[in-house]
């Protein structure tokens, strides 16, 4: 006991120093760089190889498809009766099927020589029954399909998000009525809507897009409503309310940013289904009228002569599949990137 007391007295008062204030502050310091939600998501998306490859393929497809407005190998709508049903011919490739030859009666014949095609003219994917260059038509079709799908998806987005947001945020009776309306709408098969549309409108891009959005926004509206219901009971929304924030501001500032990930993912999934629906309409003959082309109308034309001229169907089929797979992989990757804990 005595010894400890002695020890304490050995220290004089001036050998003590107050704790430096900065030390406390440095403990509170955050060293890691501040990442926004998008930066953080991009960082996670980059780790997903499939999604990144899909993203680059889609960008490439879009650039080529839209670039072909100005630079097209041939005129996609110009018919040439002399050059009908030519097989693909790629310069420098001597593989059967890509060298301008076809099997006729068990014998390989150079179709280009038969049709007197000049040496320097190549149709990389061949020509169709009216002598139009398939590659040019494929690029045109891809472009049209993408435009239809993206416009339809954007309209779905704007209608669906607005409707779902109002329904979810208002709640109560308003929500109840709005949901019943949705149920009635979702009961109408959209093929019926499409056929009815065509009795009024000319078959074309506008009527296809209109038919798609009549029922297409319903899924989006439901998802947004469910998310809004979840977010609006969060404490930060209550805090905004007690601070006197108006309902519309709460919806825009607090709810929408927090469900943006889900909305983007839903939109990325709705684009391929819109492409597919358009192709389906084109295939059953309710799509665009020639000479305009979409992937669906190209498939429709191609399948009729699949036994003799398989390239007419293979090219649009592969393009359609690649685009759909890429969109789905990208949407999957985005979902993981936006919501790594899989909460939604």
């Amino acid at each position: 006991m005595e010894q400890t007391q002695l020890n304490v007295k050995q220290f004089s008062a001036d050998s003590f120093e107050p704790l430096i204030h900065a030390e406390r502050e440095s403990r509170e310091k955050i060293v890691a760089p501040s990442l926004t939600f998008l930066q953080d998501s991009w960082r996670r998306l980059k780790k997903n190889k499939g999604a990144v490859i899909s993203l680059f393929i889609l960008i490439a497809v879009a650039v080529i498809a839209f670039g072909s407005i100005w630079v097209s190998p041939h005129d996609p709508t110009k018919q040439n009766v002399k050059y009908i049903n030519l097989p693909p011919k790629i310069p420098g490739v001597s593989l059967d099927g890509f060298n301008g030859t076809a099997l006729i009666g068990g014998q390989r014949v150079d179709k280009y020589a038969q049709a007197n095609v000049p040496e320097q003219v190549h149709f990389y994917l061949g020509t169709d029954g009216l002598g139009r260059d398939l590659l040019s038509r494929l690029l045109m079709g891809t472009r049209v399909s993408l435009i239809i799908a993206i416009i339809a998806a954007l309209l779905d987005l704007s209608i669906g998000v607005t409707y779902g947001m109002i329904s979810g945020m208002k709640g109560g009776k308003v929500d109840n009525v709005m949901q019943r309306v949705l149920e009635v709408l979702s009961g109408i098969p959209n093929l019926v809507v499409m056929i009815l549309m065509l009795t009024i409108f000319e078959p074309g891009m506008t009527s296809i897009i209109l038919a798609m959005i009549v029922t297409g926004w319903i899924t989006m509206a439901r998802i947004v409503r469910a998310q809004a219901l979840k977010i609006k009971d969060q404490e930060y929304v209550m805090a905004a309310r007690t601070l006197g924030e108006s309902s519309s501001k709460i919806a825009l500032k607090h709810v929408l940013p927090n469900i943006s990930g889900v909305i983007i993912v839903q939109m990325m999934f709705s684009i391929p289904s819109a492409i597919f629906f358009e192709a389906f309409l084109g295939f059953i003959g309710l799509g665009l009228r020639p000479p305009a082309a979409s992937l669906g109308t190209l498939l429709n034309e191609g399948y009729k002569t699949f036994r003799f001229l398989p390239h007419l169907m293979w090219a649009p089929a592969i393009t359609l599949s690649v685009i759909m797979v890429c969109f789905n992989l990208l949407a999957d990757g985005l979902r993981d990137a936006f919501d790594p804990k899989m909460k939604d």
């Binding site: 939600f37 969060q234 404490e235 930060y236 209550m238 805090a239 905004a240 007690t242 601070l243 006197g244 924030e245 500032k253 607090h254 940013p257 927090n258």
Partner: peptide
């Protein structure tokens, strides 16, 4: 709304994850 304010239970749910701290504090 200015006279009465509230402090919430769950610090993980009471701040909007998409807003910067300065915007959260300056909301009022």
């Amino acid at each position: 709304r200015r006279d009465i304010q509230m402090i919430y239970q769950d610090p993980y749910a009471s701040l909007n994850p998409r807003m910067k701290v300065q915007d959260i504090i300056a909301e009022g």
